[in-house]
Amino acid sequence: METYDEKTNTCGMICLKYLLLTFNLLFWLAGGMVMAVGVWTLVEKSDYISLLNSTYYSASAYILIAAGAIVVFTGIVGCCATLKEMRSLLIVYFILLLCIFLLEIVAGVLAYIQYQELDKELQHNLKETMVQKYQQSGEESITSAVDKLQQEFKCCGSNSSSDWSDSVWILTPSNDRLVPDSCCKTPSNLCGRRDHPSNIYKVEGGCITKLETFILSQLQILGAVAIGIAFLQLVGMILVCCLYRSLKEESY
């Protein structure tokens, strides 16, 4: 009968260990990618949070960061379990992979619900936020977010540039602009006095459609990443099971 050392050094065992270590490397990279997307959402797109009454957008970013950290931690557990060849640690690793896999399914359902809620919120609140709070005292974050939104997405107003005719700021007697300067294709001071299509984003459509498209594209990217990670997890769980069966029971 072959000894334990002989068994653990067989070609099959070595291949399993290297495959599992490779899987953990990919899993780490995936976790880092998820964390990076979460941080990017908070840093680069945080201005848009002020345009939404709900906390869905910011909460999703924090969830991504937390999920990425859990994935990285799970990868460390996997490496330790593989290198030490401990069946008990492999069980813990398998359970962690399974839990993350189930959480991804739940997160996918919540992401779909989140998009539906955000869509309704944008339809009902974006125009009101723009016309009531733009350039108002104490609403500097709203003003900055609206300006960034209109310039980044090349749009003007919620549904169209005509939305600004109801703006509290536009209707102020001391203001002679027809639209904010951020509606202009080439922004400059007082360029909003002229609302001709050659000067502003008048025929390009409102911001609400473009913001909805942006949010949907973000969810699609997250969905693709989640599917990729889920596939990796299934492969990892199969490898863990194979390595577990190849190892003898630990002696106590």
Rank of each mutant, 00 (worst) to 15 (best):
G157T: 05
N189W: 11
S144A: 14
E139P: 00
T143G: 05
G157D: 05
E104W: 11
C99K: 02
K154N: 14
A107K: 03
L89N: 06
V146Y: 00
S188F: 03
C191E: 10
E117M: 13
Q114D: 09
E128T: 12
Q123V: 14
Q136A: 10
K133L: 11
D147C: 03
T186A: 06
T129P: 00
G108E: 05
C156K: 03
S158N: 10
Y93R: 00
D147N: 14
L122M: 13
K127F: 04
I91Q: 08
S144H: 14
S158C: 09
Q150Y: 04
Q151H: 11
W164Q: 07
I100K: 01
I170C: 06
C156G: 06
E121N: 07
D166R: 12
P187W: 00
K120N: 15
L171F: 11
L102C: 14
T129I: 07
Y134E: 05
I142P: 00
Y115S: 08
D119Q: 15
C184G: 02
Y134K: 03
V106L: 15
K127S: 06
A107E: 09
G157Y: 01
Y112W: 15
G157R: 02
Q151V: 11
Q116R: 14
S188L: 06
I91T: 15
V146P: 01
G108M: 05
A145Y: 04
D119E: 15
K154E: 15
V109L: 10
E104H: 10
E104D: 13
K120E: 14
Q136K: 12
G108S: 04
I100T: 11
L178C: 02
C191S: 09
W164K: 08
V146E: 01
